[in-house]
Amino acid sequence: MYDKEKIIPGLIVFVLIAVFPILYNRGNAGHIPNPEKPKAARECVRPVQDMRESHMQLLIDWRTDVIRDNGARYATAAGGTRYARSLQLGCMKCHDSKRKFCDECHNYAAVKPYCWDCHIEPKENM
């Protein structure tokens, strides 16, 4: 093997970069998000799995429809619950804590939604 003194450190650097996530986590999966579920409400506007996967698309569709196209402000869920198509008047009626609900998963997945660029963030005791 020629140029050992350069190639071996180079390979070590490569391996360290490649296994960086393993070294960083040190075997600890960390905090698993556990968003607080509303106690009183019976049903959500969509099935749970749908909400987990695409609530952000639902919210942006509401925004476009209600704010820009003057769409309906209220709708009815499959089980008959009437709800406002609105983040703060709808969603946060039941999911009343941003910190205990929204932030749980958003922090975990490092998502920074720009909801609060326009909406006023609810003040919560930290």
């Binding site: 986590n25 600890n28 698993i32 998502v111």
Partner: peptide
Amino acid sequence: RVDIVSVKQLIVGLATF
């Protein structure tokens, strides 16, 4: 769409053996 939280749990699971 997929549930990103489940995806991250799967991948962090891999990275923590």
